[in-house]
Amino acid sequence: MSRLQTHSENHAVSRIGWLRAAVLGANDGIVSTASLIVGVAAASTDRPAIIVAGVAGLVAGAMSMAAGEYVSVSSQLDTERADIARETRELVDEPEAERRELAGIYEKRGLDPALALQVADQLTAHDALAAHARDELGISEFTTARPIQAALTSAATFSIGAALPLATAVLVPQDWIIPSVSAGALAFLALLGALGAQAGGAPIFRAMARVVFWGALALALTAGIGRLFGAVV
């Protein structure tokens, strides 16, 4: 007697909810805080002012990231809920139209009409709303918006990312703040790109190159502004 063999797989898409917020938060923490420190250091020789600016950037940035993520992801969640509510009404008011609509989706994916209708009937009998949410609306357990998770993840990783250039500025001699923070930030960004790519199953070198490029551009621009105006930015 044969039995179907089952196995579990850990797909990268299951991490999409927190991974996006984590990479965004850490990247922004490194780039914004390092750029702020470099810009202030280029305009001022007052070490305490440089450190205070970095600490202020960390706190303000973490709160901003948390608020921004919560608001934006909450808007996404509201949209998803509205679509689910509409789909629920349509399943009650127009079940046959929804049945044909679901079958049409499967036909477009390659099933013949008879089989598509059979699949639609079986999935509808099992959980009609889940079938329409997944296959018609593109909403699944992996992609469902989670505002609190996104806000906390983004704030935490921003703080960690911001702490790295800030710690560098505290530890190195004052004359070495600009080159040390700049080099350290780029190294941290490269590491972040590699870790994010590995967690998401993406090409590592491409991820490293793009975060380092944009980080270097931000650092160069803020250092240039600081030297040009000779004032705290």
Rank of each mutant, 00 (worst) to 15 (best):
G57N: 08
G57A: 11
L58H: 07
V59L: 15
A60Q: 08
A62L: 05
A62T: 06
M63H: 01
S64Q: 06
A67F: 14
A67G: 11
A67V: 15
G68A: 09
G68Y: 13
V71C: 07
V71L: 15
S75V: 15
Q76Y: 00
Q76T: 13
L77Q: 10
L77P: 03
D78T: 13
T79K: 06
T79V: 06
E80H: 10
D83K: 09
D83Y: 04
A85S: 14
A85E: 10
A85L: 09
E87P: 07
E87A: 09
E87F: 08
T88N: 02
T88Y: 05
R89L: 09
R89W: 04
L91W: 04
V92Y: 00
V92D: 01
D93K: 01
D93R: 05
E96L: 04
R99M: 02
R99H: 12
R100D: 09
R100F: 10
A103P: 13
A103T: 12
G104M: 02
G104E: 05
I105E: 06
I105R: 04
E107Y: 06
G110I: 09
G110H: 11
L111T: 10
D112Y: 02
L115M: 08
A116L: 01
Q118I: 07
V119A: 05
L123R: 01
L123K: 00
A125P: 00
D127C: 11
A128S: 15
